[in-house]
């Protein structure tokens, strides 16, 4: 299993713990990665507000690089995945549009042929690695640990750019991984909603209300921690949880784990190597419970 790795900006920026955690987990899973170092940001839907064609051209450039390597792309961010999926859909469905964009790419000697596959690590875990292999690699089962899945909008909507028709299991992939690792997925209405991050600087009160709503609902339903495949959600749900709690006037303290951190913990990787100490909401509760289990 080999992928062209698109780490995205945040896994090396605001969530520097995600990048090494993802590399470690892929190593244990036998997923070989070739990083697309010259690839640009996807635009995250923000750049697309100004100029969609510009975003599509930048993403077509990334797709062409992966095609040249003959590899599918692996993402570790719901937003990167969603934005790339939408760009790919527009480019694949409209040959004229693609050839217009390819003319711009030609000066760099690149061409996007419309064949690239773009997959989030979460989907790779479920579709390529498979539940059985994940189970076999578990050294510290999460047995009994109640975990709230939080997908991130762009890994859920719009469904026609996410391949849900062909692979409906993607819609419950996070629960599948939690179960495969021995955890108990907690259902809550907020799991498919917005974390509030995109409006953090624009309307902080609303953004923090979303953080408080989702974390408190998950906690109320018994969650001991939340897990997300989106580092942007992590920035808000972890980074701004303290401020959200203060706005709500209520303690929250719900650890928010990146998907590769959860997988890594279950595979027996040390919390330090997974960067758990870098979170703003302490992850000690999770670590203590798991180390007790490992000893027991």
């Amino acid at each position: 299993m080999k992928y062209a790795f698109f780490p995205g900006c945040v896994s090396r920026g605001g969530c520097p713990e995600l990048y090494p955690a993802a590399l470690k987990v892929c190593d244990l899973l036998g997923i070989e990665l070739e990083e697309l170092r010259s690839a640009s940001c996807t635009g995250a839907g923000v750049l697309q507000e100004k100029n969609r064609k510009l975003g599509d051209t930048l993403n077509a450039r990334t797709f062409a690089m992966a095609e040249r390597l003959g590899l599918p792309i692996m993402t570790i961010c719901s937003t990167c995945q969603g934005v790339m999926g939408q760009a790919k859909k527009r480019l694949d469905e409209d040959e004229k549009y693609r050839s217009e964009i390819n003319q711009i790419l030609a000066e760099e000697g690149l061409e996007y042929q419309g064949k690239v596959v773009v997959k989030h690590l979460l989907w790779i875990l479920v579709e390529e690695v498979g539940v059985e292999k994940m189970k076999a690699l578990v050294k510290v089962p999460l047995q009994g640990m109640k975990l709230a899945p939080f997908y991130g909008c762009y890994l859920l909507r719009p469904t026609d750019a996410l391949g849900f028709d062909e692979t409906p299991e993607r819609q419950t992939s996070l629960e599948t991984v939690i179960e495969a690792l021995g955890g108990d997925p907690v259902d809550f209405r907020g799991k498919t909603k917005c974390c509030g991050f995109p409006i953090l600087t624009i309307n902080e009160r609303n953004s923090l209300t979303m953080v408080a709503n989702h974390t408190l609902e998950a906690k109320g339903n018994g969650a001991e921690a939340m897990v997300t495949p989106c580092p942007l959600c992590h920035l808000n749900l972890d980074g701004f949880q303290g401020k959200a709690a203060s706005q709500r006037g209520k303690e929250i303290n719900l650890p928010i784990l990146h998907l590769p951190q959860l997988v890594g913990l279950a595979f027996g990787v040390s919390p330090k190597e997974l960067g758990m100490q870098r979170h703003l909401v302490s992850t000690d509760v999770v670590i203590t419970r798991l180390s007790a289990r490992a000893k027991g």
Binding site: G45, C153, Y154, L156, R157, P158, T159, K193, C194, G196, P198, I199, I202, N203, N206, M210
Partner: peptide, 16 residues
């Protein structure tokens, strides 16, 4: 203004 176009989170629920 507040409550207008910039308050949207781009969550795609409405599109979906």
């Amino acid at each position: 203004q507040y409550g207008g176009v910039w308050d949207c989170t781009r969550c795609y629920e409405c599109v979906q």
